[in-house]
Nucleic acid binder design. Structure first.
Lengths: 222, 222
DNA sequence: ATGTCAATAAATATCGATATTTTTGAAAGG
DNA sequence: CCTTTCAAAAATATCGATATTTATTGACAT
């Protein structure tokens, strides 16, 4: 049973299966940035009708992973240095706000969720589930802001950033910096409910990663 | 010839026509907040197949004007005080950033665009085109930030706010405050390239309008 | 009355075929 | 040699019909 059948089996609707699969294809670069997405080819590859594919692509527009051009179909969102810089800037602004709001509303329950998310991430080091655990940790940090729109924006920006990480990873070098120390710093500050310290640590984490990635992305136009 | 035919004639694709029409229906309240949107009914009303309607609704999901629930269709995004407060907060944060960036990059060309936008808005006072001119003025303020994602977010949030204004307008009272003075203040500060002053004026404009609307929206849950 | 269950009705999701539009590529003209 | 033009090919957009899923109703038991 291949990935497509698994996704179709698990997910209730063909549209949702297509959404998740295409999303993954764009994030991993299987559908390269800026490239035209041909409905017919995708339709066959995913083994479903054109309607759910089109609908999935329309939904991916929300996430700024797909661009829709009236009467001439869809394309994977282009990647550029300028776009990457914009994502970094917006992330810093929004996550600063979300994290402060999260800490402001801190409860023992949130603290426990955070402890677990951090633990799971450390546990998953080097494993295939690390990416998921990492995302879950970052999500848990902001969760408590109880601000659905902000969460949505942050989640979208996280994914867009992952895409650039994957783009950079296809270049030769690998991350050297000790990420887990940075995560621990953010985590400790959040648990201590020190918003300034936590935010500073989080933003510095993003900016360091950003600088690092920007260097790897030298082959990008824009 | 009715509105639908006009929209279909002007717009190249049925999907785009549906997108604009349904968007308008939600912003004006013709499709009430939180209400289920039945494909078949819309399909007949817009006189087109189900596919473009579904696709338009999927696109409106980007704008947070429509919610999609797998296997049980679409609904107009619910409205609540909490949601309204969130929109206001995000607008303030993002537009502050965008306006400062816009002013930082100020050029004579931008200044001229701003002058015109402000003039058109004043000219359109009391006219049916005021809403468009008002939106154009606010857009022009942020335009020069040259940050497509930020512009998109700001534009989305502007529309979401308009929806609440329309919701409030259906209540009895009307705006008393002198809006044009506030606009003039923002405008003058921007032209003087005083970012702090401009941002303060803009945010105060939003917060005053926000407070005013919040009072009108007493009939809302949440 | 109240809750459950099955049968029915309604609505969504999806398919396959067709109409429209854009793209391609080769021939003609400057 | 470069542009323009037009027909063929390819791709998108849309429709109408059908399969699936969810919601409703009313009979029946508690």
């Amino acid at each position: 049973m291949n990935m497509i059948e698994i996704a179709r089996g698990k997910e209730t609707s063909a549209t949702r299966a297509a959404y998740l699969l295409v999303r993954d294809m764009i994030l991993t670069g299987a559908l390269p940035a800026g490239e035209k997405i041909k409905i017919e080819a995708l339709r066959k590859r995913l083994d479903m009708g054109a309607s759910p594919v089109r609908e999935a692509l329309s939904l991916l527009t929300s996430d700024m992973l797909v661009e829709r051009i009236d009467q001439r179909g869809f394309r994977a969102a282009p990647a550029s240095h300028a776009n990457f810089a914009e994502i970094l800037k917006l992330r810093c602004a929004l996550e600063d706000m979300a994290l402060r709001q999260s800490i402001e509303r801190a409860t023992p329950e949130w603290e426990e969720r955070l402890v677990l998310a951090h633990h799971h991430m450390n546990r998953a080091k080097e494993s295939a589930t690390f990416e998921d655990a990492h995302k879950a940790f970052h999500r848990a940090l902001l969760d408590n802001a109880a601000s659905p729109m902000m969460e949505r924006y942050c989640s979208q920006l996280y994914d867009l950033n992952i895409r650039y990480r994957n783009l950079a990873a296809s270049e030769k070098t690998y991350q050297r910096r000790d990420i887990s120390t940075e995560h621990a710093e953010i985590f400790e500050a959040a648990v201590q409910r020190d918003a300034d310290k936590a935010s500073t640590a989080l933003l510095s984490h993003y900016r360091l990663t950003g600088d690092y990635l920007a260097k790897q992305l030298a082959g990008l136009q824009g």
